[in-house]
Amino acid sequence: MSDLPPDVEAKIGVIQHEEEGGFPVERGYIWTSCASVENGNPLFWDEAVASEVTGGPIAPPTMLSVWFRPHHWSPDRTEPALPLQVHFDLKERFELPEAVMTDNTIVFHEPVRPGDRIRSRQVLRSVSEPKTTKLGTGRFWVIDVEYLNQHDELVGVESYTGFGYRRGSDGG
């Protein structure tokens, strides 16, 4: 039997925090990302290759989460926004001040293209019973972030395993 509080149990498998990226997918960021790792894949630099192989320009698949990271500042917000809000919700709910991400899986579906408007939604998949590791005592949780384009096509799913913990004391 689960030891989870009912309000947490009720959120498992439920779509939360559905949101649209703050701006359309754009090539400036694609080139900046490629430059940051010296990625010379002609798909991203050569129009002829992109046209022949992918039917036009695409974004590097691993940029999936980039389109959702909020601006550091925007005029209608007073506090910095947090990506992966479910993670921070769980830290707060269990009063766990520290957290690390231990595993991250990304599954890639339809290519993301310049001009796409991508939206994301978060789904809490599981929360463990309290565990003690060398970091401290807390709980592991798995969160999926699903990404869809403006045609409602799935473009990718990221799964994060997080460990929220308290150093050297009870983990809630």
């Binding site: 990302s33 790792v37 590097p60 691993t62 980039v66 991250n104 990304i106």
Partner: peptide, 13 residues
């Protein structure tokens, strides 16, 4: 981590 993902993508492709 996202930048490490970009390094891995570059390495694979």
């Amino acid at each position: 981590t996202p930048n490490q993902a970009a390094w891995f993508e570059r390495y694979v492709t």
